[in-house]
Nucleic acid binder design. Structure first.
Lengths: 164, 164
DNA sequence: CACTATTTAGTTGCGCACAACTGAATGGCC
DNA sequence: GGCCATTCAGTTGTGCGCAACTAAATAGTG
């Protein structure tokens, strides 16, 4: 905590600019590369993420997909509808729990996986980083996400930090 | 390049899942923390980025803001309109170049800066990282963005990579 | 000067992200 | 059984991000 007192607020405001922007920009740069890589498959980047989850798990309720990808039904419902319209997934109400909707790849969706096999290598090449470095960056980002989520939920409860 | 041949495509598809998702999730986690931190100021995260740039440079044409933030007019025009409606910025056509629109903070926008001074520290605390580590992460992300941008523009020109 | 290409904001359309809500199904409790 | 809270998916509304386009102003060229 003491580290945060050494710099003045003004400096913080500028440094902050650089950090939040860097993450923002990197995400969008990634998005751009994926966009071109996925164009042939007719997938957007978030749709690709959903397909990755489905390819790995075979068949999942919407809720589970959302847990894997940190997305809620407000985002997933229309996205899955589009994937269904494209013929890549199937949705049907669960028999044992009528609230739940189970999603799974259609044969075309499964076939799409073969065509997507080349994408990750293309992305990895685009990063210009050795695998080890990418792996380390991923670990850092995961830790960051965990910390941010924890801080936010703590923030929401005791809204006063009382540290001026 | 040879590093990319050692792993099988299947493994790549999973590893890739983890990496792209990690960045995606970290960005959204950041977004969430900023959302709560900026709620009192009535700013969204991208609006905050624009204000940071304006606070730093005082007055800028839309084009320059876009260069700083890697955003085009399609994103900035409506965003700036909202900032103007909120009373934080002023827009007016440049005298010497009627194509250009100059944006600058209003007195209220300048005053907002004082109230925003505490935000970065709050974010820094939420990351749970020492400043040095954050700085390093920022450098990595910037390098990544540069590499990705370069790879993409290269991709668009010679669409065939010929490396199978 | 006239004509064309470029630059600059802005608009439109689509998809994602999320908050807030609806409605149906389920589970717990009396 | 009847009642209420919870859990799901879906809808609505707002804002961002970007591609593709329009319209106006400017720069460059013959």
């Amino acid at each position: 905590m003491d580290t945060f007192r050494t710099a003045r607020d003004e400096d913080f405001l500028r440094l902050d600019h650089q950090i939040c922007f860097s993450l923002h920009a990197a995400t969008r740069a990634f998005n751009g590369v994926y966009r071109t890589a996925l164009k042939d498959l007719g997938l957007t980047y978030p749709q690709y993420l959903v397909m990755l989850v489905l390819w790995e798990h075979g068949e999942l309720p919407v809720k589970r997909i959302g847990e894997h990808l940190r997305l809620d039904s407000g985002t997933l419902s229309p996205l899955l509808k589009r994937l269904e319209a494209a013929g890549y997934v199937e949705r049907r109400r669960s028999a044992e729990d009528e609230r739940s909707v189970t999603v799974r790849p259609t044969p075309e969706g499964a076939e799409l996986r073969e065509r997507a096999l080349g994408v990750p290598r293309r992305i990895a090449a685009a990063t210009g980083m050795p695998l080890e470095e990418v792996r380390e960056l991923r670990a850092r980002l995961n830790a960051l996400t965990t910390a941010l989520d924890a801080a936010e939920s703590a923030d929401l409860q005791e809204d006063c930090v009382t540290e001026d």
